[in-house]
Simulated assay, not measured.
Amino acid sequence: MNTTALIRPAWTPATIALMVIGFMVFWPLGLAMLAYIIWGDRLEGFKRDVNRATDGVFAGCRRASHRTHARRTGNVAFDEWREKELERLAEERRKLDEMLGEFDDYARELRRAKDQEEFDRFMANRNKPAAPTTNNNNGKSNPGLLDEE
């Protein structure tokens, strides 16, 4: 799923206009737009890190809650099976969380490599000497003027 933001965090005419309008309407809106332009590209990583941290904090609470409030059915075989399945699911969840972290690292590295490639291409194009233009005026010094011979 490829989602593109309507307003990306960069110095574009749209973001500058929104920032100016924000300052004119209510200065904190302009300040928020300025912050988005400057630091908006870091929001996704920040959100992911905060979600991961809060998931870790609340996962411990959930585990403690499930253990203390785990209802026993009275059927020992079923209760044991249920505990094993819950442990298996928790292990699968940990594996999926690890895979998500690995994929995030991989995607971040791909973006960095793409950025590096674009930068290298820019620098190579920038450092190329300008190609000499061919002179098709048969040795005339100013082709725009008529020769008076």
Score class of each variant (00 low, 15 high):
residue 17 A to Q: 09
residue 17 A to H: 09
residue 18 L to Q: 05
residue 18 L to A: 06
residue 19 M to Q: 03
residue 19 M to F: 06
residue 20 V to D: 01
residue 21 I to S: 07
residue 22 G to R: 00
residue 23 F to N: 00
residue 24 M to F: 11
residue 24 M to L: 15
residue 24 M to T: 09
residue 24 M to C: 14
residue 24 M to Y: 07
residue 25 V to H: 02
residue 26 F to M: 03
residue 27 W to K: 11
residue 28 P to V: 01
residue 28 P to G: 09
residue 29 L to S: 03
residue 30 G to L: 04
residue 31 L to I: 04
residue 32 A to D: 04
residue 32 A to Q: 01
residue 32 A to E: 02
residue 33 M to A: 05
residue 34 L to N: 00
residue 34 L to Q: 04
residue 35 A to G: 07
residue 36 Y to H: 07
residue 36 Y to A: 00
residue 37 I to T: 06
residue 37 I to E: 03
residue 38 I to L: 12
residue 39 W to Q: 06
residue 39 W to H: 08
residue 39 W to P: 06
residue 40 G to K: 01
residue 41 D to L: 06
residue 42 R to A: 09
residue 44 E to I: 12
residue 44 E to H: 08
residue 45 G to D: 12
residue 45 G to L: 09
residue 47 K to E: 11
residue 48 R to H: 14
residue 48 R to M: 13
residue 49 D to K: 11
residue 49 D to T: 14
residue 49 D to W: 13
residue 50 V to C: 06
residue 50 V to K: 00
residue 51 N to P: 06
residue 51 N to L: 14
residue 52 R to L: 14
residue 52 R to W: 09
residue 53 A to H: 07
residue 54 T to Y: 02
residue 55 D to V: 11
residue 56 G to T: 10
residue 57 V to Y: 08
residue 57 V to S: 10
residue 58 F to K: 09
residue 59 A to H: 03
residue 60 G to Y: 01
residue 60 G to T: 08
residue 60 G to S: 06
residue 60 G to N: 07
residue 61 C to T: 09
residue 61 C to K: 02
residue 61 C to A: 14
residue 62 R to G: 11
residue 63 R to Q: 10
residue 63 R to D: 11
residue 64 A to D: 14
residue 66 H to V: 13
residue 68 T to W: 10
residue 69 H to S: 08
residue 70 A to K: 03
residue 72 R to E: 15
residue 72 R to P: 08
residue 72 R to D: 15
residue 73 T to Y: 09
residue 73 T to V: 12
residue 74 G to R: 01
residue 74 G to W: 00
residue 75 N to G: 11
residue 76 V to S: 14
residue 77 A to S: 11
residue 77 A to L: 09
residue 77 A to V: 08
residue 78 F to D: 10
residue 78 F to P: 03
residue 79 D to F: 05
residue 79 D to H: 02
residue 80 E to P: 01
residue 80 E to K: 00
residue 82 R to S: 12
residue 82 R to I: 06
residue 84 K to Q: 13
residue 85 E to S: 09
residue 86 L to Y: 05
residue 86 L to M: 11
residue 87 E to G: 01
residue 87 E to M: 01
residue 87 E to H: 02
residue 88 R to S: 12
residue 88 R to W: 05
residue 88 R to C: 07
residue 88 R to Q: 08
residue 89 L to N: 08
residue 90 A to N: 06
residue 90 A to H: 01
residue 90 A to T: 09
residue 90 A to D: 12
residue 93 R to Q: 14
residue 95 K to Y: 08
residue 95 K to G: 08
residue 95 K to C: 09
residue 97 D to T: 09
residue 98 E to T: 03
residue 99 M to W: 02
residue 99 M to G: 05
residue 100 L to M: 13
residue 100 L to A: 15
residue 101 G to F: 00
residue 102 E to S: 15
residue 103 F to G: 07
residue 103 F to Y: 07
